[in-house]
Design a protein around this nucleic acid. Structure first.
Lengths: 239, 239
DNA sequence: GAGTGGTCTAGACCACGCA
DNA sequence: GCGTGGTCTAGACCACTCT
């Protein structure tokens, strides 16, 4: 006689309310939330319950907690974002800080595959970005990025793009990426790839297809990258 | 006048003691630990403190907690282990269950690189394993696995190897892998690779170099794999 | 019904950052 | 010295599992 959820813990309800207030923009990136006691008071629960909700949010990297200071909405800075999602390193494991050159930005109707990957309905528009990323002044990644136009109004009229795009999504469009799903394959460079990366035809490349997700699991970016991995490697830890 | 650690929380000390008892084999895989209250009593702390330590151990997948039943040492079953660390999937994301053919197992002195990667001292021996993994009866991965002989006594006299090696490490040698570090590159198949995988020379392959670590960060396996990714992809989520 | 982990509360004290 | 988050305790009650 019970339903499937049957029971939603109080701290979960607190979590949901706080997450909503962040995604709604009640507290902006790098701003402090009220203290645990203030929130507990406001929501009519104990401080320990708020604490549990905030700790979950910290585990998901939505906020950052600092003893003696407070709880802050996590900001996607360029450095942090590259450190977190850009997995290319030198052979010895040292992190890289690439530079980017945007080649083109266009707006057009989404094709079938894009609608499927991004979960779009009929006749929606997408933004298509092509760029090259360089390390030590030589090209090593080519990227194609597809964004649902509806979530990124006037994206194609931005004056310039930052090196790391996720801080931009957060700052300008209130979109907070918390997870990416990637699929990797080894492929041979086509003539065009080879020309753009200044490498021989047929060089093996690491192809990475990535879908970026928000806290509620909404797909907001589809990115297809080709990495030249003769001097660099893609590093990842699994737990 | 304080030292660098300066302060070690009680739950951390409880955590350390419990982890040690598991790695020492006091409780075997799939066995239940004493209840929170029993442990709290035995260790002279409150139940909430034990709880916090156990929750950390659950987050690290060292134990599994089941409401109404108890806390159990997590067992590396074949299925769970493949699901967790074998990242190859079909193009639609469906998981694969490969079969393996061991080609050779040898014991020899570690070379310089192996000593560096595995953190070995002078003149230690290693076990070297070569195997091929097949999906749908066709070869798609070739692996070279290096183990420090000291941690795996008589490994080369085992009658057979299970499909997934980590359950074997846990069951026979008390070694519990909790994390792997991987470095990925795209490379061209050599003549020998091509022959073993039954593919054309120079086919792009995904090369994965993996170091497997225990809970205390000890390197216990170095594995170099070459994946044929025309029909499959390496899938990973980043948070 | 007994025993386990999960939630929730209330209160005390500690470590840290800052003015 | 004050306010913040971090730790620790004690106790009550809930949800789940098995007998």
């Amino acid at each position: 006689m019970k339903d499937s959820p049957g029971f939603l813990p109080l701290y979960r309800q607190v979590y949901d309310r706080l997450v909503k207030r962040i995604t709604d923009g009640d507290w902006r990136p790098s701003e402090a939330l009220p203290s645990e006691y203030a929130l507990a008071n406001e929501l009519g629960v104990s401080q320990g319950t708020v604490r549990k909700a905030l700790n979950e949010m910290e585990a998901e990297k939505l906020v950052e907690r600092r003893q003696g200071k407070g709880t802050f909405v996590k900001e996607h800075t360029d450095e942090a974002s590259i450190f977190r999602f850009f997995r290319l390193t030198r052979l010895d494991g040292a992190r890289l800080t690439p530079e980017s050159e945007v080649e083109s930005i266009n707006r057009r109707l989404a094709n079938k595959q894009e609608k499927s990957v991004l979960g779009l309905e009929q006749k929606e528009h997408v933004i298509e970005i092509h760029r090259i990323r360089l390390v030590d002044h030589s090209p090593c990644v080519i990227e194609t990025i597809i964004l649902p136009q509806a979530l990124f109004p006037d994206f194609d009229r931005l004056e310039s793009l930052s090196e790391s795009l996720y801080p931009l999504y957060q700052r300008k469009f209130g979109i907070h990426i918390v997870e990416v799903e990637e699929q990797l394959q080894a492929v041979a460079a086509t003539k065009e790839d080879a020309k753009r990366l200044k490498i021989p035809d047929g060089t093996p490349l690491l192809r990475v297809d990535r879908v970026a997700l928000t806290i509620i699991g909404r797909q907001v970016e589809w990115r297809s990258s080709l990495f030249e991995t003769r001097k660099f490697v893609y590093s990842v830890n699994l737990n």
